Simulated assay, not measured.
Amino acid sequence: MNISNDKIKNIGKLVLQCEDVVENEWDSLSFVFDVAEGSASNPGFLYRDEKAIPATSEIEDKPLVLDDTIVDLINEIAREYGHEWH
């Protein structure tokens, strides 16, 4: 794959800037980015001990930057390889 690893690293850095991630203690986390034509959702969980805390991946002052970055990656992969993610 000719897609730069920096793009994936940037998404990770953006996730670590999300309000819920910054404001809560956690041991691990997971997010699902569901991007469709004209809409996006990004539910997730922060895990601490045996608890799962619902979380969203919104960055204060830049609420759409993470969604836009993921859409850019999806579009780049589609251009590079000729098929879209489903």
Rank of each mutant, 00 (worst) to 15 (best):
M1A: 14
M1P: 06
N2S: 13
N2G: 11
I3N: 03
I3E: 04
I3R: 01
S4I: 00
D6G: 08
D6E: 15
K7T: 02
K7S: 03
N10P: 01
I11W: 08
I11F: 10
I11V: 14
G12P: 01
L14H: 04
L14G: 06
V15L: 15
V15M: 14
L16R: 11
Q17I: 00
Q17E: 14
C18H: 02
E19M: 12
E19C: 10
D20L: 06
E23L: 15
E23I: 12
E25C: 10
W26I: 01
D27Q: 14
D27Y: 07
S28C: 08
S28L: 05
L29M: 14
S30I: 08
S30Q: 11
S30V: 10
V32S: 14
V32A: 13
F33M: 06
F33R: 00
D34Q: 12
V35Q: 06
V35H: 03
E37Y: 05
E37S: 11
E37G: 04
G38Y: 07
G38Q: 05
S39M: 13
S39K: 15
S41Y: 10
S41N: 15
N42G: 04
P43K: 12
P43M: 09
F45L: 12
L46V: 11
L46C: 08
Y47R: 12
R48V: 03
R48P: 00
E50I: 12
K51L: 12
K51G: 02
K51E: 15
I53K: 15
P54E: 10
P54C: 10
T56I: 14
S57P: 02
S57Q: 05
S57W: 05
E58V: 06
E60T: 11
D61H: 12
D61P: 02
D61C: 09
K62A: 13
L64D: 04
V65M: 06
V65T: 11
V65Y: 02
L66F: 03
T69P: 04
T69F: 08
T69H: 06
T69W: 08
D72I: 02
I74P: 00
I74T: 01
N75D: 13
E76H: 03
E76G: 02
E76A: 03
I77D: 01
E80Y: 09
E80F: 05
E80L: 07
Y81W: 13
Y81V: 08
G82D: 09
G82Y: 08
H83I: 07
E84L: 08
W85R: 01
W85I: 04
H86V: 03
